[in-house]
């Protein structure tokens, strides 16, 4: 484990039955770094992301977040998860609460803030994502783009060290995508460490410090956006980019 990394993944393996989905992944993410992960469907991107906060249990290898090894049974995973914000493709807002309660639930329940503090903080984050006037709304009444921005505010309210995004815009109508990407750009600019699985190549080019190309359970190639998009080295990468950029 190296102190200079926020997230450090070492030789991570994950199988479902006989299907090996992750074949020994190594990845280091520095503070303030934005890593975008691209790759064909089924290559293991989501599985990798979900191993970082142990929504999936790795078969072997290590994942260190802020120095804690999540594979270590002595480590309280709930404590570590508090430092890792996660945003899902399908938002997963809690329909039994209003927008404000969605955002304050975790800080209050986990004793991080008093109710009043949490409310104030929640309004601050809802303001960042441009939805402070929707605080009392029921999440199911919001558009997809709005829901996803609430989900981002909900994750931010725990003041995470790292944010994980799993295709945050791929369930959205095209006109909603921009708003969500704007919020993510702002977070990147303000220095949030982010790992983003995305099909938005434009976003990756513009925002990523590093682009990681996943293929068949492995990292085929990684580098700066310029290296990956303009000078891909591996035929799999070229193949993939040809497909996604020329449709």
């Amino acid at each position: 484990m190296d102190k200079k990394y926020k997230v450090q993944v070492k030789d991570l393996h994950k199988s479902y039955g006989s299907n090996e989905v992750l074949k020994g992944i190594n990845l280091n993410v520095k503070p303030n770094e934005v890593v975008c992960m691209i790759g064909p469907s089924g290559s293991g991107k989501s599985t990798f992301l979900r191993c970082i906060n142990k929504l999936e249990e790795p078969n072997s290898g290590h994942v260190y977040v802020d120095g804690y090894d999540i594979a270590d049974p002595k480590v309280n995973i709930n404590k570590v998860r508090q430092k890792i914000g996660m945003v899902f493709q399908h938002f997963n807002l809690f329909p039994n609460m209003n927008v404000l309660q969605n955002v304050t639930l975790a800080p209050v329940e986990l004793g991080k803030m008093s109710k009043d503090e949490a409310k104030k903080a929640a309004m601050h984050y809802l303001d960042i994502v441009g939805l402070s006037e929707k605080a009392d709304a029921n999440p199911t009444k919001l558009s997809g783009g709005q829901q996803q921005r609430v989900a981002i505010a909900r994750a931010l309210a725990m003041k995470p060290d790292v944010m994980l995004f799993d295709e945050p815009t791929s369930a959205l109508d095209p006109e909603m995508v921009g708003d969500v990407l704007e919020v993510m750009k702002r977070l990147a600019k303000e220095g949030m460490t982010m790992i983003v699985v995305t099909h938005e190549m434009g976003f990756a080019k513009q925002v990523a410090d590093r682009v990681v190309f996943f293929h068949d359970g492995d990292i085929r190639e990684q580098g700066t956006p310029d290296q990956i998009f303009n000078h891909p080295q591996h035929p799999d990468t070229r193949n993939f980019l040809d497909k996604v950029l020329n449709v």
Binding site: N53, V80, R81, M86, N92, A106, L110
Partner: peptide
């Protein structure tokens, strides 16, 4: 839905 569990657990809720 399973997503509700995942969202809640990913926030650190036991």
């Amino acid at each position: 839905s399973q997503g509700q569990w995942e969202a809640a657990r990913s926030l650190g809720l036991p």
